[in-house]
């Protein structure tokens, strides 16, 4: 896939849930050098919150939500992003997390016409592109594979 050039982007949204926040942190560390970074992280509860301090140091804005309200904002991070997206002019969105979260981000990016990359997960047999187990349906028909063509896909390209 054609990867977005971070140098050309002014404002980025990072959107992660649960264990999906780890790959986003590495990306945010690089992005903050040249762009404004807004980060939205969702967790199940207070105990599940990860990398808060680390993300603070690489984000211009950090929003944390918990499903049960035991820490910071009560609710889903996607709703906070929806509120802010009207006021902030966003150039690109990067998301990693559970499937419902990715679906919501994909729909939002499409609606607002914002370039968006999502990192997908699928159970793998070989991790080499041989067994064709980790298939993801693409809009052009047929399948690509998370291990070889992914795991990061243009959100407009895949059917999840």
């Amino acid at each position: 896939m054609a990867h977005l050039n971070l140098q050309d982007i002014k404002i980025l949204q990072f959107f992660g849930g649960g264990i999906g926040v780890f790959p986003l942190y590495e990306l945010a560390k690089n992005a903050i050098k040249s762009a404004k970074v807004n980060t939205y992280l969702g967790f199940r509860n207070k105990e599940a919150v990860l990398l808060e301090k680390e993300f603070e140091s690489v984000s211009n804005k950090l929003v944390i939500t918990t499903d049960d309200g035991s820490y910071k904002i009560h609710g889903f991070a996607i709703n906070e992003l929806k509120n802010d997206i009207e006021s902030d002019k966003i150039d690109a969105i990067f998301a990693c997390g559970p499937l419902p979260l990715l679906k919501a981000v994909q729909a939002l990016a499409k609606e607002k016409n914002i370039p968006c990359q999502i990192s997908l997960e699928e159970r793998m047999g070989c991790g080499l592109g041989v067994c064709l187990g980790c298939a993801v349906e693409v809009v052009t028909g047929g399948y690509e594979h998370v291990c070889k063509q992914g795991p990061v896909f243009d959100s407009n390209k895949v059917i999840i």
Binding site: E122, R123, G125, L132, G133, C134, A135, V136, E137
Partner: peptide
């Protein structure tokens, strides 16, 4: 052949199940 819809594989005790569908 495009093969079957995902998920196509899963791990089981000392083995695995697959349903690739001859992609």
């Amino acid at each position: 052949r495009d093969g079957n819809k995902p998920s196509r594989i899963c791990e089981t005790p000392s083995g695995m199940l697959n349903s690739i569908g001859l992609q």
